[in-house]
Design a protein around this nucleic acid. Sequence first.
DNA 1: CAATCAACCTGGGTGC
DNA 2: TGCACCCAGGTTGATT
Length: 275
Amino acid sequence: MPELPEVETVARYLRETVVGETISAVVVLDPRFADLEETHELVGRRVLRVGRRGKHLSLELDDDWVLQLHMMMAGQILVRPREHSEDRFLRLQFNLSGDIEVRFCDSRRFGRAYQLDAPAYREFLKSLGPEPLADSFTARLLLKALAGRRVALKSALLNQQLLAGVGNIYADEASWRARLHPLTPAGSLSDAEAGRLHRGIRRVLRDGIASCGTTFSQYRSAEGEPGEYQSQLRVFQRTGEKCFRCREEIERIVVGGRSTHFCPKCQPASRAAGS
DNA sequence: CAATCAACCTGGGTGC
DNA sequence: TGCACCCAGGTTGATT
């Protein structure tokens, strides 16, 4: 599921709907899902801000309490009116003042919810790589993050300590934009290539947000709506279809255990290991 | 320290 | 219909 554009889409809706609301009840349906030792501590607290860092969502509450949510592969965070019908795979629910509920659903039970105190939250914010859409994220910074890395570019882009928020879909899409083979050694990029990659990453993430994310099956916005970026994908899950740039057939390989899609003609394997 | 890989889970789709 | 098998947007922890 959810990569940066999908999480941002959810965060934006939460900002419109739950900021200022007070938690009136926490319902844990799957104890393994939520690492909330003291759920009663959350009751009565108000949501002051909704943050997003990489693929993580943070509900910042009164007294520096933070509720961290991660949707992993299949999670859905839905904002529902109390009378809304039951949602499938509900694992955790927050009832809010104003008769609305935040429902965290997840068929695969990979998602997680947990509390952080202020110091732990600061540590967490520092533990991830730069935000790719921040003004401060430059091509030079990207080059620096990749410097010295011999892993495949694809694997580096998925490393959240190097760059926060890019996942399997947007990594492939950005590499296609930059005309870089996914097996290119991450630390071998020239200035020009890093510039193209930097533009590609920001382009696909911005476009993804503008389309409210990519939905193949599970992902829904907090309003329960599917995203629309899947119609704009250039390589992801287009194996055997024609490249939009050169009409060559898109190929699929496995890199670091992850399905990887690219155009063998537009993204030549000059320096790429193993091909 | 860097890189690789299995494990965590379940549902949906496909092919026999 | 049933069943075996493959695939999936992510992360972490053990191992090399």
